[in-house]
Amino acid sequence: MFLITCPFCGEREESEFSYGHEAHIARPENPEKLSDAEWADYLFMRKNTKGVHLERWVHTAGCRRWFNAARNTHTNEILAIYKMGEQPPKEIKAMIEKGKTS
């Protein structure tokens, strides 16, 4: 069983959640001023990280709220959970900068 801690409901089984892909991708302020390449970069290009990945999840079968998670894509270990609009914890940022995975 793979448990994910919803920041609102607490620990729940993975099957209650849906994956929302990479987090912290801001929609460009003025899409009409972007070149096709820049727009395509915003729409399609993702990091495809092996290691610590910042991503969005939604508690579909529970409270239906979105939140962010830092997950190691190699081991599937969830390292941190933080709410929408928040930045990842400092230690997670440091891990990503140093290329550490746990």
Binding site: R12, E16, A61
Partner: peptide, 10 residues
Amino acid sequence: CAQTIVSKVG
């Protein structure tokens, strides 16, 4: 209480 899944039913 909880909103959860029982045999695939929310």
